[in-house]
């Protein structure tokens, strides 16, 4: 275990949960990120916004190791991840969960079996019956009815599939949760319910959430801070009020456009 000592669980680590420095990503001639810096603080819900093609998903994929950047430094829980082989990062990867856009559930497994996959993979010694119990309560914890557990993904609605995706992302009790456009394709009621679930889970489980979204309502409703991606980097991070004080045309248009105003008004009338 000497190797993994360096990336052990450190409950007293108080620095940024995710820290990205000088990130550069490119596909052929097209540069997606150039000198991108971003910190995600412990316990916050950080919303990541940006126009289409500004590389929000690429940023997430870089952090979780699905995309190798050209340059830069990525630290999660204070541990640098770039340049490390997969087995070395396993202790870190146990501590995050990812919800992909379409849910990315394994179609040949039931919802409960989907939740059991990461547990079996990372904790193969866990008692089988206990693992099944864990899968069951995780399914219910994600706001799914218990009868959804033995169903296959194809039998679920879009919103339920996202919840099942959350259940699988939470399988290992991660401290950090990545959500890629969780409310895309959901009706407003489903989207609001999902926002509530995210907030509730974040508060109960003490999660840090990295949330990519286009949904202005989500930003207003649950995000503690918002990072804006434009011009190949993060041009601003802060609360929505702080961002509004900035004089950047894209930010102004985004939050002060007709939709942005509507979402903001909706928040005020609720709160």
């Amino acid at each position: 275990m000497a190797d993994s000592q360096t990336i052990d669980y450190q409950p007293d680590y108080q620095g940024p949960i995710v820290s990205v420095e000088g990130l550069r990503n490119s596909f052929g001639d097209q540069v997606v990120h150039e000198g991108l810096d971003l910190d995600v603080r412990r316990g916050e819900i950080l919303g990541v916004v940006g126009g289409s093609g500004t590389g929000k998903s690429v940023l997430m994929r870089s952090i979780i190791g699905l995309q190798t950047p050209d340059e830069g430094e990525i630290k999660v829980f204070g541990e640098p991840l770039l340049g490390k082989a997969e087995p070395e990062t396993i202790e870190i990867r146990k501590r995050w969960g990812v919800l992909f856009q379409g849910g990315a559930l394994f179609s040949t497994l039931t919802v409960a079996e989907n939740v059991m996959v990461p547990i079996r993979e990372f904790y193969p010694d866990m008692d089988r019956d206990f693992r099944r119990e864990v899968a069951k309560y995780k399914v219910c914890l994600s706001g799914l009815p218990p009868d959804a557990a033995p169903k296959y993904p194809s039998e679920l609605s879009g919103g339920m599939r996202k919840r099942a995706g959350i259940a699988r992302a939470l399988a290992l009790d991660p401290e950090l949760l990545f959500l890629d456009e969780p409310t895309a394709g959901l009706d407003p009621i489903g989207a609001a319910a999902f926002d509530n679930l995210t907030k509730e889970l974040q508060q109960t489980l003490g999660l840090t959430v990295f949330l990519i979204t286009h949904d202005l309502d989500t930003l207003h409703a649950i995000c503690d801070r918002v990072a804006v991606l434009a011009d190949q980097r993060v041009i601003a991070v802060g609360t929505i009020d702080e961002l509004l004080a900035l004089d950047h045309p894209w930010i102004q248009e985004y939050f002060n456009g007709p939709r942005g105003r509507m979402a903001s008004a909706g928040k005020k009338s609720l709160g």
């Binding site: 039931t110 409960a112 079996e113 059991m116 099944r132 899968a135 069951k136 309560y137 995780k138 399914v139 219910c140 914890l141 218990p146 009868d147 557990a149 033995p150 169903k151 296959y152």
Partner: peptide
């Protein structure tokens, strides 16, 4: 979240 559920149909 403690509700009876099945793993498989």
């Amino acid at each position: 979240a403690d509700q009876p559920a099945e793993i498989r149909p």
